[in-house]
């Protein structure tokens, strides 16, 4: 059973995720890093998901809160979050072979979720006491793949929790133009799945909702939908302009789970401004050092060439688990 985290522990996690995400977002907007789908303001969800699962549970991450999930699960340190942002770490499973279960999002919205259904089905067939959490956005929730998955999860009562990061806007399309449903949780009824809406701006409420959901599904409660209400404080990705008005964007920035939790902690006397400043300084130094390290390592990387000389057998091995066919052994292009 996962150890319950105190508000201060949750704060440290969301703060570290925030500082790393802020830096990666800035470097991407400055053009040093390629286009980035910023996870700013989505840290509370990633930390809640990553903190509520056991080692053998499976999380399918989304591109916004994925880094925070890995941080909370103990998979990536703050330094490694920066290195990952620079593209210097191998895939998650290669980093931790045999370790914490992570499924990728494929880059085609919603298309990753059926894989999560299969993993949940494998737990059910093997009677394992584990759960799968699949995280995706409000935009993805309109994909047919996710409808099929929710329906199958409902009818088979799978140990699968759907977490919808609802930041109200899918690239440039507002939620009000995407669905007539009042909330995305309303959709649960159609699948016979319990669903709730949670304020993602409240990191402790988000954490409490996730731990409760995991406990319920783990004890045989079947699938659930958790809609996390969030805001997107910037553009969809660093290279795409935002269509929203200044007012809309500034309203979005007002909702800030990290600042909210900081204020709650300070107001309750468990934390103070001085300790906070020193923690931010400590984390910022780690980020600065990691950025220096990443720049150095990148400078030393040999760029790939396009000389077309990869042997056929090597290409086969990159694409296939099965043995290289005899015909391709020793063959050139």
């Amino acid at each position: 059973m996962t150890k319950a985290l105190s508000p201060l522990e949750i704060y440290r996690l969301v703060l570290a995720s925030r500082l790393s995400e802020q830096r990666i977002t800035e470097l991407s907007k400055a053009g040093e890093l390629p286009g980035h789908h910023s996870g700013l303001n989505h840290e509370s969800v990633g930390i809640a998901v990553g903190s509520s699962v056991d080692f053998d549970d499976c999380v399918q991450t989304s591109y916004r809160s994925g880094a925070a999930v890995m941080h909370a699960r103990g998979g990536l340190t703050l330094r490694e979050l920066i290195l990952q942002g620079f593209g210097l770490l191998p895939g998650i499973r290669a980093q931790h072979p045999g370790g914490a279960r992570i499924l990728r999002s494929t880059g085609i919205l919603g298309g990753q979720v059926p894989t999560a259904v299969g993993v949940a089905l494998s737990y059910q067939l093997r009677r394992k006491p584990n759960v799968v959490i699949s995280v995706f956005g409000d935009g993805a929730s309109n994909e047919g793949a996710i409808h099929e998955c929710m329906n199958i999860a409902g009818v088979k009562r799978l140990p699968l929790i759907f977490v919808v990061e609802n930041n109200g806007i899918a690239l440039s399309t507002r939620g009000s133009d995407s669905t007539a449903a009042k909330t995305l949780a309303d959709r649960g009824a159609g699948y016979g799945i319990p669903a709730v809406t949670v304020d993602g701006g409240d990191a402790m409420a988000t954490y409490a909702a996730m731990t409760a959901a995991v406990a319920r599904t783990r004890s045989g409660g079947g699938p659930q939908i958790i809609e996390m209400k969030l805001t997107r404080p910037g553009e969809h990705a660093s290279v795409i302009p935002d269509v929203r008005s200044e007012q809309e964007v500034s309203d979005a920035r007002l909702v800030d789970a990290v600042a909210n939790l900081r204020n709650t902690l300070i107001n309750s006397g468990t934390w103070d401004a001085e300790s906070d400043a020193s923690l931010i300084k400590e984390f910022t130094e780690i980020v600065d050092a990691a950025v220096d390290e990443a720049r150095q390592r990148k400078a030393n990387l040999k760029p790939p060439t396009d000389d077309g000389l990869l042997p056929e057998a090597q290409v086969w091995r990159m694409a296939h688990a099965s043995d290289v066919p005899a015909a391709l052994q020793g063959a050139s292009r």
């Binding site: 499924l103 059926p114 259904v117 089905l121 199958i152």
Partner: peptide, 18 residues
Amino acid sequence: FPISETGYIGSGIGLAIE
């Protein structure tokens, strides 16, 4: 499975990974 090719082909992928 219900008539959901995306859902059950993808479920097969997840089962195979496991």
